[in-house]
Amino acid sequence: MSWTFVLVLAGTAYAFKFLGLVVVGGRTLPAAVDRCLALIPSALIAAITVANTFGNGQALQIDARAAGVAVSVVAAWRRLPLIVVIVLGAAATALVRAVS
């Protein structure tokens, strides 16, 4: 691996972050655009959640992770603290893996 590769990747990754937060993000935008931007975390975090639960590269599969995430949905619905939701989700996944 070359240092050029490391530094170009680092520069690109930071450029995306900088572009969003600092260059474009500081402007005053129309109300409709603001309403849309407020939905970014919901849309993208939901996508990442399903990708991390069912995705394996380009394949989709149901495995021990789905059981853990199902437990975490119940825990979130019961309004348990975030730490408890994380620990229950991980523990349920580990348990299903251990017995299967």
């Binding site: 975090i45 990442i48 959640t49 399903v50 991390n52 639960t53 021990a64 992770r65 853990g68 995430v69 437990v71 975490s72 949905v73 825990a75 979130a76 975030l82 939701v85 994380i86 229950l88 989700g89 991980a90 349920a92 996944t93």
Partner: peptide
């Protein structure tokens, strides 16, 4: 590996 989607759900 399930800790991340679990955290995101919460």
């Amino acid at each position: 590996d399930a800790a991340f989607p679990a955290a995101f759900v919460a």
